[in-house]
Design a protein around this nucleic acid. Structure first.
Lengths: 111, 111
DNA sequence: GTATATAGTATTGTTTTTCATACTAATGTG
DNA sequence: CACATTAGTATGAAAAACAATACTATATAC
């Protein structure tokens, strides 16, 4: 960052993109959210089967991050074997327009 | 089984999210694109000043990736000192709805 | 008693991203 | 000549993301 220290930072608008990227960025979160938003509540292993290539560790980690950020609700049933259900919160459901805009954009020059 | 009838099941599509994430994911691309889309053509150093914390190397790299993916047009003027202008392509301009949806979502529970 | 099922955790290793620093070219200005 | 200017490259190091494997608990079915 030394090589930009001589350049004054223009701070005229508050760009939320870095914050948004923290919430829904990365390799898995968009995929997880899309499933929970458009297909409803899923159990852990259901998600694991639906998401190609994800490891158990990674899925757990991403779900915990989404839960921490209020995008996913986690419900544990005290049973054996364990049952845990994941549901999109209202905040996540509000992302529907974003997903649809992305989809439309993708379709526009890929179909 | 959990009742999920309150969740809007819109439409089931073939998940393009991993591909979309490759194009506009990461720490910098959304920021760069937003500037070029909403504020028009910028020179390299203008972008550098506007994007807080980005290094020269990183900015070059991200711009090259965006160019390769047809989201940014790069115009080099054969002058010394160098002048290079970056412009959002039509494909990038088509992302306007995505950005607006993201912005609206962000505003909804952060303002 | 053995196997199976589920949703994890712990640990270690690899791969990908990101950062810091030094360097370049060719011209105009003092 | 010395120096600033712009948009880069090259290189190595550090940090973050991601992956692979082994391990756990316990009720139920066989």
């Amino acid at each position: 960052m030394k090589d930009t220290s001589d350049i004054p930072v223009v701070e005229e608008w508050n760009c939320p993109m870095p914050d948004i990227a923290k919430l829904i960025g990365g390799k898995w979160k968009l995929i997880i959210l899309q499933i929970l938003i458009f297909q409803g509540t899923k159990r852990f292993n259901e998600l694991r089967k639906m998401i190609d290539g994800v490891t158990q560790t990674m899925l757990t980690q991403q779900l915990r991050a989404l839960e921490r950020d209020g995008l996913v609700h986690r419900k544990v049933y005290p049973e054996v074997p364990p049952r845990v259900e994941y549901t999109a919160t209202q905040r996540a459901l509000n992302l529907t327009d974003v997903f649809e805009a992305m989809h439309d954009w993708w379709v526009k020059d890929n179909d």
